[in-house]
Amino acid sequence: MRGKILGLVGESGSGKTVTGFSILGLVEKPGRIEQGRILFNGSDLRRASPEELRDIRGNRISMIFQDPMMTLNPVLRIDTQMIETIRAHKKISYDDARVLARDALGKVGIPSPDERLAAYPHQFSGGMRQRVAIAIALLHKPELIIADEPTTALDVTIQAQILSEVQKLCREVGTALIWVTHDLSVVAAIADQICVMYAGRIVERGSTESVLDGPSHPYTNGLIHSVPGNNRPGTPLQQIPGVMPSLLSLPVGCSFRQRCRYADSMCMAEPEFNAVETNRDHIARCWHPLAEGRPA
């Protein structure tokens, strides 16, 4: 949704990054998108020709990676890289493009953007590099940004700076954002909607409030209660036993079954999405959804 922030949450190996990549058609071989449609403004991105896709990527949808050096070329100056990006999608002069690039750097809070344009990526700190990557993602005022764990490698104070910039930009420009992360508390702070992924599937989706306050899927509930800040200090954390199954050998039926305390014979069949009773926008893939207020 335009101007909204969606948090895509999951642990490593849950498929959240691949979901982000698929949208842009960046899945590397031998991986491929087997089925389904990717609808962007109503049209299917999977049917788009390579030219159309190239026009969309970086222009209408852009991506921020966990490691900013995936975006930046270490041997090119920042201005070269930014101007190249601008001129790839817009017919404007070099000088005009440079002005745009400078403004973009200023907008993400890089001091003295004029001088910094002539710098190489290694001359920036990690937090600054991530800002440059964000500035590049924002150049064309995309309708959608996919951010894949962009603050995971950063310190708390720097993370807070980036989160505040991103929030501001979404509000001002009206960009929609998919924020992929394993950190529930980051999502709690910025997202409007949350999708929780487990073993390659979305297991729960709903507004931030309804998912975090009344999780319906036992996995989401376990995840929330594993966060140390959410438990009384010193008490044992509620833990989810076991580990996520390998995607190569998923169990039959519900993939969370083996770690779930509510699992029974019903869970041998794959559950479908069901709306939570009280809220039709909040759905979970579970045979035994937790009712609100039911003890974990």
Binding site: S125, M128, T157, Q161, A189, I190, L212
Partner: peptide
């Protein structure tokens, strides 16, 4: 530092950042 830690119970918050690195 304490103010900038994202927590589960604080939703849609504005970050008051410390400037600089």
């Amino acid at each position: 530092l304490l103010k900038e830690v994202p927590r589960l119970d604080s939703r849609h918050r504005e970050f008051q950042t410390i400037k600089g690195e």
